[in-house]
Design a protein around this nucleic acid. Structure first.
Lengths: 119, 119
DNA sequence: CCAACATATGAGCATTTACTCATATATAAT
DNA sequence: ATTATATATGAGTAAATGCTCATATGTTGG
């Protein structure tokens, strides 16, 4: 109501938000991994089926090294898992969340076409 | 079966993937906006209720300028919408997808605790 | 009209990052 | 063993990015 209670409310907000902040760095880190064109392409490819580094390199027309570096980032975040078969290492999506996040992202950008009135 | 058909299969993959590539740059751009600590904190704050720039600055303990810059990024991606009230500009989440994406991200990082065996 | 306040934005800078290149490791084939 | 193939990784570099600082725009109150 008065200025004092507003200040107290603000402090409560800060306190509530501290919980969110505990997640925020992990959250932003997670999304930043999705926030790269090469990595998204890799994940979209793995949405169809498991692939080895060689396949992915050919698919994206990029060097093995570049792909391998990005796969390491995806591995470190548990977004992909690996299966070794002879010389090859086959990659697949880590868990259901990955596909869900990708699909909701796709939903968002495809539905956004209608919302371009306000510019 | 033989080497020839494998090559053809590869080309089909590339072709299929071209569709995905149409989305991939938009997708990675979308996620890259979520992939910053400051912006995620702003979005998490807006998950609770609409806030003006002044509020957000206080909440995150950052300058108005820094917040305003990031709000522009969020606005440009239609992740937040604005409502002007006198001098203040109130920000709120753009659509349901934003909250959904945040929540699934939170789900992923909270469930991930159990998966830290393989390191 | 002018001062105070809220927000927006351009330029500059320091950090981060995604690639290339070189090299290392591991498995298979001869 | 040696060579070839598949993948992994460290160092270095060019580009992207998030902040600060200065300034501009817009709104309210005296």
């Amino acid at each position: 109501m008065n200025k004092e209670t507003n200040k107290i409310d603000d402090l409560e907000y800060v306190r509530e938000n501290m919980l969110d902040n505990y997640y925020s760095s992990k959250l932003s880190l997670l999304f930043s991994v999705f926030g790269d064109d090469t990595r998204v392409k890799i994940l979209l490819a793995l949405l169809n089926k498991e692939l080895c580094v060689y396949d992915i390199s050919n698919l994206l027309n990029m060097t093995h090294s570049a792909i391998s570096h990005q796969l390491k980032v995806l591995r470190d975040m548990n977004l992909v898992k690996t299966r070794k078969e002879g010389k090859e290492v086959y990659y697949s999506l880590g868990d259901d969340h990955v596909a869900i996040i990708l699909n909701i992202g796709i939903e968002h950008i495809t539905e956004e076409k209608n919302e371009n009135e306000n510019k």
